[in-house]
């Protein structure tokens, strides 16, 4: 499909996959400062799908959309290095504390302003772990959705998508506009392109520029701007954002500390193993 506009939803997440003992504070909350912030893994799979469409047709544009703190501009640059055309950082205090419903409300408004033909997101983010945002954005837009995609291509004006389900695969055909969420089993994202890194290394949002030193500004870097949008830019009702806009509330958070029980320590000796087997037989654990 020539000339289509694609928005990729991407989230910056703490890398929860290799959490060390210092990742949790004593009060049970997450110590985000010790975890590296990364491009949510399945959102990279999503970006790759968008870039493949861009390469296959004329005039396709790929815009990254991320909602988060100013620091999340890092993943917009990361996307630009890999071939995205531009990015929007949705950032505002009013967004803080949003659950998936409030998050999808804000994202859907931003998507509406961008008016793309296709929205591609990851299946799930590795911090909130809900996989809810994609379908909720689709519903807010009133568009159909196709989840768990691992391969897609156009046939005429319709997208043919292979979905990975828990017990098999399903191929569907869907019209645009559409929201697709991409599974981790889809092809990995391409690497950064050195030329694009040179081009976008100094791309900054306005807020980031203000924080840069005067040396940086005096060096007269090429002024590539990353667009920042707040509540007003998307015409959001603040009541529907943040804590007030979130039906779900976190009542309590508990750090997972494995509870130590009394365990019996044995060696691999014949004596130890035989007495274990006898004990298990006697108490009917095995029989």
């Amino acid at each position: 499909m020539n000339g289509i506009k694609i928005v990729v939803l991407a989230k910056q997440v703490p890398d929860t996959r290799n959490v060390g003992p210092d990742a949790m504070k004593a009060d049970g909350t997450v110590n985000r400062s010790v975890l590296p912030a990364i491009f949510n893994p399945e959102d990279l799979n999503a970006l790759e799908q968008a870039l493949r469409i861009k390469e296959s047709y004329e005039g396709v544009t790929v815009t990254l959309l991320t909602m988060g703190p100013v620091r999340a501009a890092e993943i917009i640059r990361e996307g630009l290095y890999r071939g995205a055309d531009d990015g929007i950082l949705l950032t505002d205090r009013a967004f803080a504390g949003s659950d998936t419903l409030a998050t999808s409300y804000a994202l859907a408004l931003a998507v509406r302003r961008l008016a793309p033909d296709l929205v591609i997101g990851g299946r799930q983010a590795i911090d909130g772990d809900t996989a809810q945002v994609g379908p909720q954005v689709a519903e807010k837009l009133g568009w159909p959705q196709v989840t768990y995609a691992e391969e897609m291509h156009f046939e005429g004006e319709r997208l043919i998508i292979r979905r990975r389900l828990e017990r098999g695969v399903e191929n569907v055909s869907a019209p645009l506009p559409l929201v697709v969420t991409v599974n981790g089993t889809a092809p990995a994202c391409r690497y950064r392109n050195a030329k694009l890194v040179m081009k976008y290394k100094y791309a900054r949002t306005d807020t980031e520029l203000q924080a840069e030193s005067s040396d940086y500004i005096a060096a007269g870097r090429p002024a590539i701007k990353i667009t920042e949008w707040g509540v007003d830019a998307i015409g959001a009702d603040p009541e529907k954002l943040g804590l007030s806009g979130s039906p779900t509330k976190v009542k309590e958070i508990e750090n997972v500390i494995l509870q130590s029980k009394e365990s019996k320590r044995l060696t691999a000796s014949d004596g130890d193993i035989e007495s274990l087997v006898r004990e298990l037989l006697e108490n009917h654990t095995i029989g």
Partner: peptide, 21 residues
């Protein structure tokens, strides 16, 4: 309804409620 779930890659357990909806 107390909805108890792991999050953060299984590193925390959260109790979630929906008081008003």
């Amino acid at each position: 309804l107390y909805q108890i779930r792991p999050a953060f890659g299984g590193n925390i357990i959260a109790t979630i409620i929906n008081p008003d909806h």
